[in-house]
Design a protein around this nucleic acid. Structure first.
Lengths: 233, 233
DNA sequence: TGTGGGATGTGATTAATGTCACAATCATTT
DNA sequence: AAATGATTGTGACATTAATCACATCCCACA
């Protein structure tokens, strides 16, 4: 069997154990099409995966690791949209929008991604309705989640926002004890506060015994109180 | 030819002049399927079209008129997500999410909508890849637009937010002179400010000769200055 | 004609948040 | 070892926006 150059030492899409929900519904020949139009790559922590403003030639599937999705606003301030989890697509919204990428993505740790050619991806959508349906589900869910966070955030004060983001991370890692993948500044950019105010809220929560802090490590001690703060403030 | 009861005096989807971009790619038999699973309805100004929390049995296509899309946050405050324009779908995100509707919609004026049965809609997506593609384009564009607004808004002060929303409306109506479809309170809920602060900003802009105000009617006088304010804060 | 309720504008006050300044820590480089 | 720069915590202060209070205005309706 012919093995394309860029597939050396790479798994095929067919045998991939990290398939997305959408790719899971593809048939054998469609998987081969995907396989012939995608290639795997490794990214080092801190590297930029995709930059806002770039033309979209590939969409990116995140196999392992966490990624920061952000934009730089008109005033030059950074706004972090979300922390993207494994098994997600990067740049998908922009692909179907206007072909220009709208978000920037940087790796929060060493990670593995797959580049997928956009024309192949589009062809799969048009050929396989179940695939299209799953992509739609993905896009809509993500959109709903992020909007819910944003909308709630804009109604809350600093305490409520910080409580929210702690719950967000504890849910993401499925653990009350986790290592923040962000600096304090990035945390601030995620909840739209100043860095100083963010650390102040952290100190207050620590002093009140709601959380324990050890550099990047955070442990939620009073979970219920945190939920109450998230709700009321 | 048999005419179903609910189609009396209604146009068919085939002859509809207000088709969405997605429906425009359907073939004859698919249009008939759509026709058999949708019905038109009229809504009076102020009526609720769809409520957050309801199970999604139909999606709604907005043929004419403007609609307010909003959620009520955990604290009870209202957050308006966007003003939905004609030729848009209502409840689409929720359809592909978890079957529960996440946004509420009320009519800002008398308007015409079409209810479309969700199973028929899903069948069209799975049957016709071009249709699915167009639906994806719609969802992604809307998502990008709204995020862009939200992300920018969260970085701006009251002046910047109000300037933004004036530009938003003038673009929507394609006119520097327009009638606000919202009360001052709703305007405040759209840009996440208090009602009082919103009117104060309006008064300031009026005093500075940036806009003219006559009740709900607003005329943008100094367009360039408004853009500058929007940009700088 | 009068009455009640919603919407609106504005002043005074309070609360929250951003900004500035500075010190401490740590990792990396020279 | 010294130096540089990034990150973090914290106090003082300035700025901004929310809240409270109240007066108008307008409209629907008795």
């Amino acid at each position: 069997m012919f093995t394309p150059f860029n597939k050396l030492n790479k798994s095929t899409c067919t045998s991939c154990k990290d398939k997305s929900c959408a790719v899971a519904v593809l048939n054998e020949s469609q998987l081969e099409l995907l396989d012939g139009n995608s290639y795997e790559s490794e990214i080092k922590k801190g590297e930029t995966i995709l930059r806002s403003g770039a033309l979209v030639s590939h969409i990116i599937y995140l196999k392992t690791g966490y990624v920061k999705e952000f934009i730089i606003g008109q005033s030059g301030k950074t706004q972090i949209i979300q922390i993207v989890k494994p098994f997600s697509y990067l740049g998908l919204h922009s692909l179907f929008g206007d072909k220009i990428n709208h978000y920037s993505y940087t790796a929060l740790e060493d990670l593995k991604i797959c580049y997928i050619d956009i024309s192949a991806f589009k062809r799969l959508i048009k050929e396989n309705g179940d695939f299209a349906y799953e992509v739609l589900v993905y896009v809509c869910k993500e959109s709903l989640n992020n909007f819910f966070r944003f909308a709630n955030q804009s109604q809350k004060s600093a305490n409520g926002r910080f409580a929210d983001i702690l719950l967000y991370f504890s849910e993401m890692y499925n653990n009350c004890n986790f290592n923040l993948p962000l600096t304090r500044q990035e945390l601030a950019d995620l909840i739209s506060l100043s860095r100083e105010n963010t650390t102040r809220v952290m100190s207050r929560f620590k002093a009140d015994g709601i959380i324990k802090i050890n550099d990047k490590n955070i442990e939620i001690v009073k979970f219920d109180l945190l939920k109450k703060i998230s709700k009321n403030g």
